[in-house]
């Protein structure tokens, strides 16, 4: 398959802070690469280098077949960039924002107008098109920002935390719009702190921490890598919790993880079906009827926390975003994410 983005050994240093310590990437054309990592991991620096906004100290990269260092103008002709903060001129209308980009791209005034109308329609902004962008909601700004980065129909799109701070509805809408772009052949590099976002959108994922890639693969591969499955048991009455904890402790070498709020106890599923059977039998002996008895594959939250192993920082950076995915450490993160993916045993 053709490769739309390659990077080899990208390094960047700010003063005595090594922002990137050798990043390698390869993104096949027409796919989405999710770049996952906590704040300060080097995600934005990577995007800024690939979008020609920043020169790396070392390393080389090509975007859309053009060498970043030698043909920056060609690269710019082939990319769209949506930064971490919606790059919107608040005092222009949505339409004028897009038209301005069209004019700067030398589409000609008439074509720029037509393209603006088309993009406003595509991003559900036609009604708001003639209002000042200042009056837009966060979700509308992001949509306008994305629309503005698509004026030239770039084959490669960089999205730096495109949904940070958005509510769920806006996030889902934006995901749909990103998928549409990929369906029509665009290659996307997307950075995110949201594991769910990477899981939902990305064909492959790299996890970055402290300026280096610490894992890569498809979402499924990464989940498998962290190991496996957990047995989860929830009960209707908190009175039963101690008994459940004892039962699960007896069938697994690991210490059971308890979430009091959802009255759920979980252990890693080490012994396969035998573990499930003895857990079930143990509960039956005690006469406990679980509300839920399930085997859950690890989510990307687990992958992330296992890989970065820095619960405090991950939790803090998530709260800085909007806290939706924030956990107070591995325990809470695990219990948090269990609603997302559940397979009946």
């Amino acid at each position: 398959m053709e490769t739309a983005i390659t990077a080899e050994g990208l390094r960047k240093r700010y003063g005595d802070h090594q922002a990137l310590s050798g990043i390698d990437l390869s993104v096949p054309a027409g796919t989405i690469l999710g770049v996952l990592g906590p704040n300060g991991a080097g995600k934005t620096t990577t995007v800024r280098i690939l979008a020609t906004l920043l020169e790396p100290d070392e390393g080389r990269a090509t975007v859309a077949g053009y060498d970043l260092a030698k043909q920056p103008l060609q690269v710019r002709r082939n990319i769209g960039l949506t930064g971490q903060y919606a790059a919107v001129d608040e005092r222009l209308t949505g339409r004028e924002n897009i038209e301005l980009i069209g004019v700067l791209l030398h589409l000609g005034r008439r074509a720029a107008k037509a393209r603006a109308a088309e993009l406003l329609e595509q991003f559900g902004l036609t009604d708001a098109g003639d209002r000042m962008a200042k009056t837009y909601s966060g979700g509308m700004r992001r949509r306008l920002d994305l629309a503005a980065s698509l004026v030239a129909r770039p084959p490669v799109l960089f999205l730096d935390e495109p949904t940070t701070g958005l509510d769920l509805t806006s996030r889902l809408a934006l995901w749909g719009m990103i998928r549409e772009q990929v369906d029509s052949g665009t290659t996307v590099l997307l950075t995110t702190q949201y594991l769910e976002e990477a899981d939902q959108l990305a064909d492959s994922i790299v996890v970055i921490d402290n300026g280096r890639v610490i894992a890569d693969g498809t979402p499924d591969e990464l989940k498998r890598k962290v190991g496996g499955e957990r047995l989860e048991v929830s009960v209707a009455d908190a009175v039963d919790l101690p008994a459940v904890i004892r039962t699960l402790a007896a069938v697994s070498p690991a210490v059971p993880v308890v979430d009091d709020e959802t009255r759920t106890v979980s252990v890693p599923l080490t012994g396969g079906v035998a573990t499930i059977a003895s857990a079930a039998a143990g509960l039956e002996t005690l006469g406990i009827e679980p509300e839920d008895f399930a085997v859950r594959r690890s989510s990307l939250d687990d992958v992330f926390l296992a890989l970065t192993g820095q619960t405090g920082r991950a939790a803090a950076s998530d709260t800085a975003g909007d806290g939706k995915e924030a956990g107070q450490g591995p325990v809470a993160a695990v219990s948090n994410s269990k609603q997302k993916e559940k397979e009946p045993a």
Binding site: Y85, A87, V88
Partner: peptide, 18 residues
């Protein structure tokens, strides 16, 4: 600079002096 417009302009294939 701080609302991201400079990044947007700099990522466009336009003359950087403009």
């Amino acid at each position: 600079l701080n609302n991201g417009l400079v990044d947007r302009f700099r990522a466009l294939p336009i003359s950087r002096s403009s």
